[in-house]
Simulated assay, not measured.
Amino acid sequence: MLRIKDDMIVENIEGLKGGKGFVKVINFFNPEDFLGKGRLYGMSVIKPGHSIGYHKHTGDQEAYFVLKGEARYVDNGEEFTLKPGDLAICKDGDYHSIESIGGDDLEYIMLILYS
């Protein structure tokens, strides 16, 4: 199977999980591609000052792999700075948020798998 960039579903979501501004989500997988194992595999692009709000994962876990930019990442109330090459994992039952900081757009790969 091959999926051309122009065939991917792209969403521009305002206030995602109570966050600030917009998040662009490029979905690599369509729902049927997960074979019941997950619900999101793609890339997010967040402009500086925009964010995904603090939220809990229930029944799944999410991983972020940073490609470009810099992020303020909150993991269960503890704040970290993420840079290209960093990986963050929010396990089932945990909380997290992410905000683009610095001068460049934040770009990262995300994957949500069911527990």
Rank of each mutant, 00 (worst) to 15 (best):
Y41P: 06
P84T: 04
R72I: 00
C90T: 03
I98K: 00
M110E: 14
T58C: 09
K37S: 13
H50V: 09
H96K: 04
L87T: 11
S51I: 06
M8Q: 11
I109L: 10
K91M: 09
M1E: 15
Y41F: 12
S100L: 08
G36V: 01
G36W: 05
K68Q: 13
G53Y: 02
A63P: 07
E11A: 07
A63T: 11
V23T: 01
E70P: 07
D75P: 12
L2E: 15
L113I: 11
D94A: 01
E32P: 01
F80K: 12
K83S: 13
A88T: 11
K68M: 12
R3I: 13
H57E: 00
L16V: 02
K47F: 09
H55N: 00
C90R: 04
Y114P: 13
V45F: 11
Y108E: 03
G21R: 07
S115G: 05
N76M: 03
L16I: 06
I9Q: 13
D7N: 14
L111S: 12
N30G: 12
I112V: 12
I112D: 04
N76A: 07
L82Y: 01
K91E: 14
T81Q: 10
D86S: 13
G49V: 04
K5P: 14
M8V: 13
G21A: 00
E14H: 05
S97R: 06
V23Q: 01
D60R: 06
N12F: 09
S100G: 14
G93D: 09
G19H: 04
N27G: 04
H96C: 08
G77K: 12
G18P: 08
D94T: 06
D104P: 00
H55I: 09
I52K: 13
R3F: 11
V23I: 03
E14R: 06
L35K: 15
L35C: 13
D75C: 08
I101S: 10
N27Y: 06
F80N: 05
L35E: 14
K5W: 14
S51H: 07
V45K: 08
E107Y: 04
F22L: 14
S97H: 07
Y64V: 05
